[in-house]
């Protein structure tokens, strides 16, 4: 069992929703409202030491509801292991707290997730499109967005 599961269940008993183990990867589904607090705790607790945010990925699970997943991949240099956190967001208004204040690297990752998937990161200092032009319409990584242009 991953060492972070017990830690999170103890510190955030209300917010741990599900634990998925697959091919040696541990994914903990947590309450999106608590993501900033959880990441801060994982970063600052010496027995966790997740000081490095590897990436943030946005996933569209259409037609499932809640439709969007925001995935945080953490690495601990001290314990040399990984942890994946996932937050599920509703399709109608995918909004989640920005974690730029916890990890500076989240800046670009969140902008990318906003740009391509339309996830809104509340509290991001500069939430603008990053790869696509500013006047681009739509979010191309969403499943309803066509592969080819008209």
């Amino acid at each position: 069992m991953h060492r972070a599961i017990e830690f999170l269940q103890e510190r955030f008993p209300e917010d741990v929703q599900e634990v998925v183990e697959f091919r040696g990867d541990t994914t903990i589904v947590v309450n999106p409202k608590a993501i900033r607090a959880i990441l801060t705790a994982l970063r600052d607790a010496p027995e966790m030491g997740y000081k490095y945010l590897s990436m943030i990925a946005a996933v569209d699970y259409h037609p499932a509801e809640p439709r969007f997943g925001v995935v945080y991949n953490l690495y601990s240099h001290r314990y040399r292991d990984r942890l994946t956190l996932k937050c599920l967001l509703p399709g109608a208004a995918p909004v989640i707290d920005s974690v730029v204040s916890v990890f500076s690297t989240a800046d670009f990752h969140e902008r990318e997730a906003y740009d391509l998937m339309g996830i809104v990161f509340k509290g991001h200092p500069n939430l603008k499109r990053i790869l696509l032009p500013e006047d681009f319409v739509g979010f191309p990584l969403r499943k309803e967005f066509p592969q080819r242009g008209q």
């Binding site: 697959f22 994914t27 590897s54 990925a57 996933v59 991949n73 990984r82 994946t84």
Partner: peptide
């Protein structure tokens, strides 16, 4: 069905693939 993350040491740093 499943989700994995695999990272390697690329010349420029950690290159990771998250596949659903």
């Amino acid at each position: 069905k499943g989700e994995v993350y695999q990272a390697i040491e690329a010349p420029k740093g950690e290159m990771g693939f998250y596949i659903v």
